[in-house]
Amino acid sequence: MTLAAQELSVHAGPTALLEHVSLSLSPGEVLAILGANGAGKSTLLGRLAGERGSPVVRTTGRVLLDARPIESWRPRELARRRAVLPQNPSLAFGYTALELAALGRHASGDDARAALAIAREALRATDAAHLADREVPTLSGGERARAHLACALAQLWDAECDHARYLLLDEPTAALDLAHQHEVLGIVREFTRTRGVGVVAIVHDLNLAAEYADRVALLVCGRLAAVGESTRVLDPGNVEAAFDVRARTLEHPLRPGPLIAVARRSARGVGDRRPPHANRHPVSAEP
């Protein structure tokens, strides 16, 4: 049982957004996707979620969910197996945080009472229980992010479940303060361990990725530059190539494992070893 991309390529006209990406995720594992802006992270996440993308892009290769092409799943069956948290979730009308989280139970077949009970638990898990009766538009950015995360967790909440489940997160920590970044990724990792959910998360902070992910995948210009354990993938060479910065790894003073330190690459520096392919991707066509 895996969620897998096989030889996945996405082209918008002559521009490649993704090229020959193959990657798989098992239940119970956290995979972080790293890469510069425009490297294809959101495109990859969208395809793994089963989105077809805009009509102007051409997709080749396959995404398989439990060995079945993802587009062959019916929406409801698919929704019981994978949940998605988009980068900038929006919500029309003044639904409360509780009502929002309960929307995650749409495909579950729960009655309204059961859906609300799970929504409350999911809000508690994201440290947002006290926001249950607040209208989502009145919440701060971080509070709103936790309410939306609760909605995604509620979707995969069932403790007993006879199939694999996957949670796809597009920058779940973007709107959060430091404490809540760790809190949320901790919750997500806990969720994978206790419920056997596989997680793919786009993360920008290399050290957060190194701390919470079992494996990391590094995208450079639509290609999968490296995938594997964070200590191996996030070596200074890879980081410098992918993000166009200077990088060193040190021993982390507060926890086991490396600390990745980065600094701006000086424009006229002697040691400027910018590899030719490390430039920002010319098209930032992330949908």
């Binding site: 929406p75 409801r76 994978r82 988009p86 009502e99 929307l103 749409h106 495909a107 909605c151």
Partner: peptide, 15 residues
Amino acid sequence: NALALGEARAEHLGV
């Protein structure tokens, strides 16, 4: 109700 989250997200929720 699910559509209030936008079309892509409603689809993710199984609509």
